[in-house]
């Protein structure tokens, strides 16, 4: 479970980038976080993962505070950043082993998970190659495998489907569903509203640093009193907010 409680962040005085956000992502739920460019999505995710410190409020992962108990809280989630260009000089297998060491995964688990995930994403045969020789999609896949290796209960994925081929994208979506079905929590940001519509149990829309809607797709339709795709409703709701 992820609890975002009264979170506010300002880079400059009196100019909040994110203002008083309150969201609870329940276990067993896939939560889609959407919003226009510059709305505050990345800032929120950065605060959730400990990259940025909130000016006010707190974020709890299974009741562990990222502010008060950061190391424990960080063990509770796995984060896939939007830029997969990291540790390019390492071989795929070395990167996965490194991640497993950082999250203290035992030998048997890491062996099984490396085999399972890399075969699923079809990068198993490239594990002995350096990440710098991978394509963008392959880099994205190895980062995802690195996150999944410690089997975190909460997944935080920033634009995880960008650069993935249709097959891998389909597999990742299935894995997200499976993870939520097992009583875990998936929080992801996306620009692809169609994916959010089909995949998410609930959606959060952020605009100009404020949460303007949290609920299911059905609830959104009811609130706006309109029929239409999420794309159309999103345009409507963000237009109203301007």
């Amino acid at each position: 479970m992820i609890d975002i409680i009264n979170v506010t962040k300002a880079y400059r005085k009196n100019s909040n980038v994110v203002e008083n956000i309150n969201i609870r992502i329940n276990d067993g739920e896939i939560f889609g976080f959407i919003g226009p460019n510059g709305a505050g999505k990345t800032t929120t995710i950065k605060m959730m993962t400990g990259i940025l410190e909130p000016d006010e409020g707190d974020i709890l992962f299974n009741e562990k505070s990222i502010k008060k108990n950061p190391v424990e809280a960080k063990r509770e989630f796995g984060f896939v950043p939007d830029d997969p260009n990291m540790f390019l000089k390492l071989k795929g297998i070395d990167y996965l082993n490194f991640m497993a060491d950082i999250y203290e995964v035992n030998e048997t688990d890491r062996m099984n998970r490396i085999e399972k995930f890399t075969k699923e994403f079809e990068i198993y045969d490239a594990l002995e190659d350096k990440i710098e020789s991978y394509s963008h999609g392959m880099r994205q896949k190895i980062i995802i495998c690195g996150v999944l290796i410690h089997n975190p209960r909460n997944w935080i994925l920033d634009e995880p489907l960008t650069g993935l081929d249709p097959k891998s994208s389909y597999k990742l979506k299935n894995m997200m569903r499976e993870h939520a079905k097992n009583g875990n929590c998936v929080f992801f940001s996306t620009h692809v509203l169609e994916v959010a519509e089909k995949l998410c149990d609930r959606i959060g829309i952020i605009n100009k640093g404020k949460i303007i809607f949290v609920g299911t797709y059905e609830e959104m339709k009811k609130k706006l009193g309109e029929e239409g795709s999420l794309e159309e409703l999103f345009m409507e709701i963000t237009k109203n907010d301007e």
């Binding site: 540790f87 000089k89 390492l90 297998i93 070395d94 082993n97 490194f98 497993a100 060491d101 950082i102 999250y103 203290e104 995964v105 035992n106 030998e107 890491r110 062996m111 490396i114 085999e115 198993y124 045969d125 490239a126 594990l127 002995e128 190659d129 020789s133």
Partner: peptide, 28 residues
């Protein structure tokens, strides 16, 4: 790209996280 078949069993060795962190930094 070598596309060499990786022997996961052989390559999966557990190290202390601090040692692994340092090794990764020096390797870089």
């Amino acid at each position: 790209r070598k596309n060499k078949r990786v022997k996961v069993k052989k390559r999966c060795k557990v190290s202390d996280k601090k040692y692994s962190y340092l090794k990764n930094d020096i390797k870089g």
